[in-house]
Amino acid sequence: MTFLMRLFGGRKAGTINASRIERVTSSRSKEDFARPVRSQVYREVTVHLESGYSRKGIVLDYSDNGLRIRFPTNETMPRFLKVSAASIGMDGRAQLVWQKGSEVGLKLI
């Protein structure tokens, strides 16, 4: 018992003021954090780099302003590239937003 008192202390946890919690959570509206609706697909895409090199990948999901692509290998992508995904009706320039392993997130510009 002495060991537990040293480890966790002898104080009891204080009570939480419920009015404080409601005030904090009500100050954030869900509209502030709303993301565009994404369509889940599994379609082929071709990405053309400025150097002339092109790579094929798979579109995992997309929205009106961006898409997420998975490639078969982990290669670093440049900041700007051209996307051709005729099966979902997307064709144009895109900007790299994030890259994690073989997946990239692109914003259409």
Rank of each mutant, 00 (worst) to 15 (best):
A18S: 11
G89C: 05
Y42F: 06
M5G: 03
S29T: 11
I16V: 15
I21Y: 02
V47K: 08
P78S: 12
V97L: 14
T76V: 10
T2R: 07
L60R: 13
T2A: 08
S87L: 05
I88E: 13
S19Q: 05
D64C: 03
L67N: 07
R93F: 04
F33E: 10
L60E: 13
I88V: 15
F33W: 13
E75P: 01
N74D: 15
S87V: 03
I69D: 07
K56S: 11
F80H: 15
G14V: 05
L7K: 15
T15C: 01
R93W: 02
Y62S: 08
F80I: 15
L96G: 04
R11F: 02
K30T: 08
V41L: 01
V41I: 09
Q99P: 00
E75A: 09
G57V: 06
S54Q: 15
N65D: 13
T46W: 00
G92C: 06
M5H: 06
M5N: 08
V83R: 00
A94I: 05
R43D: 15
R79H: 07
L96F: 06
R55I: 13
Y53N: 14
S27V: 11
L4D: 07
A13S: 11
N17V: 03
T46R: 14
K107E: 12
D91P: 00
R55V: 05
E31D: 14
A34Y: 03
G52K: 14
I69A: 06
I16M: 04
L108M: 14
R68L: 10
D64S: 12
